[in-house]
Design a binder for these strands. Structure first.
Lengths: 118, 118
DNA sequence: TTCAACTAGTTTGTATTATAAACCATAAAT
DNA sequence: ATTTATGGTTTATAATACAAACTAGTTGAA
């Protein structure tokens, strides 16, 4: 199948740069604290919160909110097996597409167009 | 610098899947017809038109509209040097980030967090 | 010869989205 | 007691992707 069509079908939940950063960090960490993730990605708290919600909805992370000494909120994020699989698949697919793209010969496809006389 | 911060700063004009597909095809072709690009990317005409406009504004492509036998519109898109450089840089940066990410040790960074007693 | 259908796109509208700004609850400091 | 800081969430805004409707011309059929 045409590699370019596959590009348009990349997992967008993962593909979005901020979430790609979060997921990559979590892939290395397995689990991390909210503020730690915020620091390494450079995202604002608000954006972190939103992106994490999306990742949670997608089943890629689980968010554990607790209160330290029943007072200070403390949120821990853990990547799920599904999340690990999703990012592995994402890179695999991207690599594959790039590989195919390198070998792609436009003339094979373009021929039918070029042959038409305008 | 932290690789994850760099992810969040990927060139979004290129990063968007539809445009990544268009640019990759053009990188291989150098120049192509509107309908040809539409076919290989699987995009609708409307989306093609919008994405091409964005790429043109960014200086990554030049769009040449002419009329065949002064009647039928016929649009040719050519990637610019700037466009070629942009996509080369995009892949290069992404590869670099991935490489650094693989070697990234969360504990080096996480230590300061872990040390805090909650 | 006029009416429908097709071609090659563009424009407009809508719905999603990322991002920023404002907010909330608690704690600590002044 | 009032301000400032922490650790987030919620709301609002601005940008975006995408689809549907439209345009301008052509061709074909009745």
């Amino acid at each position: 199948m045409m590699p370019f069509k596959e590009m348009a079908r990349l997992n967008k939940t993962i593909h979005e740069p901020a979430r790609l950063a979060i997921m990559s960090a979590l892939y290395a960490c397995t689990m991390a604290e909210f503020l730690f993730l915020q620091e390494v990605t450079g995202l604002t708290k608000g954006n972190m919160s939103c992106h994490l919600s999306k990742l949670e909805k997608a089943g890629y992370v689980v968010i554990d909110k607790r209160f330290v000494r029943k007072k200070i909120p403390h949120t821990t994020i853990r990547i799920t097996l599904e999340g690990k699989a999703a990012i592995e698949q994402y890179w695999k697919k991207l690599d594959h597409i790039r590989e195919v793209t390198k070998q792609w010969d436009p003339n094979k496809k373009a021929a039918s167009f070029a042959a038409q006389e305008y």
